[in-house]
Design a protein around this nucleic acid. Sequence first.
DNA 1: CGAGCGCTTGATTGAGTTCAAAAATCGTGG
DNA 2: CCACGATTTTTGAACTCAATCAAGCGCTCG
Lengths: 193, 193
Amino acid sequence: MNSDFKTYLNLNANLSEQQYSETIKGLQIKNIKKGEFLLRSGEICMYIFFVNKGLLRSYTIDKSGKEHIIQFASEGWMITDRSSSFFNESSDLYIDAIEDSEVYFLDESFLQKLSCLSPEFIKNNTQALHNHIRNLQDRVNMLLGATAEERYLKFIKMYPNILARIPQWMVASYLGITPESLSRVRKQLTKKS
Amino acid sequence: MNSDFKTYLNLNANLSEQQYSETIKGLQIKNIKKGEFLLRSGEICMYIFFVNKGLLRSYTIDKSGKEHIIQFASEGWMITDRSSSFFNESSDLYIDAIEDSEVYFLDESFLQKLSCLSPEFIKNNTQALHNHIRNLQDRVNMLLGATAEERYLKFIKMYPNILARIPQWMVASYLGITPESLSRVRKQLTKKS
DNA sequence: CGAGCGCTTGATTGAGTTCAAAAATCGTGG
DNA sequence: CCACGATTTTTGAACTCAATCAAGCGCTCG
């Protein structure tokens, strides 16, 4: 997969050469070191982060201090807190880098510009929203009705590439179980096969 | 709250008198009896259902036969399966009526027409999508990090009006616990106060 | 090469489930 | 308006899945 944001734009926005260079202008890519934060709980999220290279995650911290990973984003994916950016509310999320990463910061004015130039981009954006809804609903559904083992099997099926790049405790955090439980689930599974 | 769909349109679409009557034309309201289905798992969802009067719910049935309620919709709210309608996939959801209801069936062509006539409607629609995302993310977060009691307290705070209109086992289903557990949670709470 | 982090394993605990049955409430027809 | 059956809620007891607490192993990276 080509993860470059410019490729993404070509595929999703359908701009002329001139529109393209006009849009790109001022767009900034930043290098984010592993562990560095892009958003902290309490802040308002001002950007959509496009991952050009590397791996990011978003997560919450509950009142007993435990992390719960909401989303991973590797090359070619975007991550943000839409609740916060859209409604201008302070965010509950943290976003940080799991690996050293290259990230485009897409701000409101950039998205605005792009929307004006490209109806196709608007369409793709709407599609992205629906996709997000689908993922979240699926997740709610899993959390309501599936066991730890089922959730784990689904995860490794859906995100094999991410699985290989993150420590096991992050998988556990995403699934909503403890690292110890995940270890045991995995042990069970090896026994079965 | 005035739950009439026409009021909703006036507030959210900003149409001229003529556009308005043009749009409304052909729009159908249907009476749905308690227990009647608007969507079943396996079907493709063709409508957004606007609840003019009454109360609807959407839910899944997991492989052990248990229901999990995804959403309630009372007067002035809409309910649908966006994954299914947008991506033209068969739905995992059931939608049925908890009370005898009056429901507007908004189909693709209607929404299209409205979008062409009213940029304001598009904006409101986008807002609705973001709102949906916010709710789902919140729910994921609760399911990952909060106890049954915390989830119940949040529910009665967020949806007091709905609470009063549904049996307790539906609340339990929405929260992801058994009716027995909810009964015990409630008992605990009365003891505390 | 040692300190720290991640993973595993064991023992124990606990929140919530399951199964069963009684008590309360609801709805409907007489 | 009452009565009866059905549904919903409550309660109890046993059980289960996953959490917690604690200890040990292995790797890596500083």
